[in-house]
């Protein structure tokens, strides 16, 4: 394969390790969580970190660590679903626009521009408000606002490939436009889309958390990190850990995705090969 033999950047390795660890934790949540995520214990509400509850308990006496572990499922699930939906859509739109050009490109890219012109969180808010709150709709809303950057990236790559001689050769042999886009252009646009995707995942986590915080994403009692911060907000001054623990989880996972994306960008950059 064309994979470069250079070493993967150490910080990106750290990012990848955190992402993989989070995925494993989410997968094995029932085995790892010391308590059930919904088990209330009003006698031990708002207990500080330490003792029987490593990260303390929330306002209903639920173990925060257990909720964080189960929350990883929700958060990573949203990230995975959004990526699976948006990256192929953006890639297809961008490659089709870049290769065919003309009015096809004009229409597709103006639609893309319209989506990019509005702040993502605000647009996602509008969609969730219209669709109704809930995780499924949050995923849908985030997906609707997340594909345009991929389309931009893929189009820019396709434009440079459109007049490549190997594309001319395929056309001359009789390859259809669809085949050229799918088999010849898309594989070459994939690395930049993957990089963009891993950088975007941090943003997706933040939007998901933002929607949860505003009460438009995951609904209580689902242990979603954003929603956990929202409830912890009321106890912020006296019981900081209720909001801080999910906040730290969001920050660490976002940072991990960013490190991974940055590293991938350097690693996959053909100029450094």
């Amino acid at each position: 394969m064309v994979a470069p033999s250079r070493r993967f950047p150490p910080l990106a390795t750290l990012g990848a390790a955190i992402v993989v660890a989070s995925a494993l934790i989410a997968f094995a949540a029932p085995l790892l969580a010391p308590y059930a995520p919904y088990a209330q214990d009003l006698a031990h509400r708002l207990e500080p970190p330490g003792g029987a509850h490593w990260l303390g308990t929330d306002e209903l006496g639920r173990d925060i660590l257990s909720r964080l572990i189960y929350g990883a499922r929700v958060t990573l699930g949203i990230v995975a679903l959004v990526s699976v939906v948006t990256a192929p859509v953006g890639l297809l739109v961008g490659c089709v626009a870049g290769y065919f050009g003309g009015w096809v490109e004009a229409v597709l890219m103006r639609v893309t521009d319209i989506f990019l012109a509005l702040p993502r969180l605000i647009l996602a808010l509008a969609f969730v408000a219209a669709l109704g709150p809930g995780i499924e709709n949050a995923v849908l809303a985030i997906a609707i606002v997340s594909w345009p950057p991929y389309a931009r990236v893929a189009r820019a790559e396709s434009l440079t490939l459109r007049h490549a001689e190997f594309i001319d050769a395929a056309r001359l042999a009789g390859a259809s436009g669809g085949r050229i886009v799918l088999r010849h252009i898309m594989p070459l646009c994939l690395p930049s889309v993957i990089v963009r995707m891993s950088l975007d995942m941090a943003g997706v986590i933040l939007i998901a958390a933002g929607l949860g915080f505003l009460g438009l994403g995951a609904q209580p009692p689902t242990p979603e990190w954003g929603a956990m911060i929202a409830t912890g907000r009321q106890y912020m001054l006296d019981h900081w850990w209720v909001a801080a623990m999910p906040g730290i989880a969001i920050a660490v996972l976002s940072l991990a995705f960013n490190l991974l994306g940055d590293g991938l960008r350097d690693w996959l950059d053909p100029k450094q090969r």
Binding site: V2, A164, E165, L172, A173, L188
Partner: peptide, 22 residues
């Protein structure tokens, strides 16, 4: 026509640009 490639073919100038890199 689709089968034009069976009649006519082309060799390009730049051997670095005329083969798909992947």
């Amino acid at each position: 026509p689709h089968d034009f490639g069976r009649v006519v073919s082309m060799v390009f100038q730049d051997p670095y640009g005329s083969l798909h890199p992947r």
